[in-house]
Nucleic acid binder design. Sequence first.
DNA 1: TGTCCACTGGAAGGGAGGGCTT
DNA 2: AAGCCCTCCCTTCCAGTGGACA
Length: 413
Amino acid sequence: MENSVFEPYLERESVFKKDRDILRPSYIPENLPHREKQIDQIASILATALRGERPSNILIFGKTGTGKTAVIKYMGNEISKADERERVSFLYMNCEIVDTPYAILQNIGNRFVQDFDDRIPFTGWSIERVYNILREKIDEEKRVVIVVLDEIDKLVTKSGDDILYHLSKINDDLKKTKISLIGISNDLKFTEFLDPRVKSRLSDEKLVFPPYNANELRDILQQRSNLAFENGVIDDGVISLCAALAAQEHGDARRALDLLRVAAELVERSGSDKITEHHVRKAKNKIELDCVLEATRSLPTQSKLVLLGIILSEERNGTRLTTGDVFSAYRELARKAGVSNLTQRRVTDLISELDMLGLVNARVKSFGRGGRTKEIQSSVPILETKRVLEKDEVLKGMKNYHLKNQTTLLGLK
DNA sequence: TGTCCACTGGAAGGGAGGGCTT
DNA sequence: AAGCCCTCCCTTCCAGTGGACA
């Protein structure tokens, strides 16, 4: 073992005290600074559950990294601590992962199935059947069930509000048990897309989590870094810098913690023992690049072809592309790759998806007689993105490929 | 003022693929 | 095996449109 390749890394003293997970967004600390008010408010609503009554439904709004999920999970822990008679069930679900009506009902239902053989299969049944089993199982004992639907807006855009309609109405069908819903959303306007009945039932209580300011972020980082690091590992100013950078990004505490964690990991890898502002700046670049490249890597093949089409057209024509330009570039690439090519309608949707992921910018613009179309621009680092795209099995042959010549509407201007 | 371009983006529906039930 | 379910990805069809130009 003495010559193990891991040795220098194992022996090296870590800047982390024990657990680097403390700096991960999923870690729930014992207290959440600057969210006392929200916690108190939610506690006052949910206390009803401990008395065996149904609490009001709650809708929680706030941008990413404002502590919504952390607060709710914290409340879940607190409830199970206080719930001596075990009458309250707390279910947390992220609708980005559990993203279909079927999956949600199946998930809730299986929580109340004792026997493994009775479990609801992850597919195959009709929704109605899943709903009936769920209703039956959940009503076997008297209890209060709190169902948290995180990123509930994702659910509505994907599958509509039918499922929310049924869930919010389920109490009418229950005799012993009471269910209350907590919805968490990034998007303040998402209730506009809801059926008015669902909307009013869902939002008995509304809470908004404001973004953290730089001072608040500093407190959060200070608390976590005391837990995570040995004394004296952090240079003065590191925490303030992380806080300031994250405050610029609409007060995203997740971002602040990521900065600190990645900076620490960089330090650890380089073998030095002090985190400086320099490392934070390096961490910022690393995070941004990693984010983009990871999003690119995990794209389906057809989307990768569209993205590559955009990049290659830009190299040829400059940066102002229309849907038509992108589509013809895409078609050329798809043919070259030997992949079936999609219709323009579908490619439009893929472009919009790339726009939502932030990999490209697409704005609808009218060019008068030139027609009305999207103006598309990539917003990824060209070299690195190409390298990632070329790793895809199907896009392998696209290395150093240039599109055939072609004049375009905007390319001429 | 009206025309007309190059799309946009909604709606509906097909069909493949996961699976369960009988 | 046949018949059903749900979900995902995609096609087809099409009414609607912002604004430069005649």
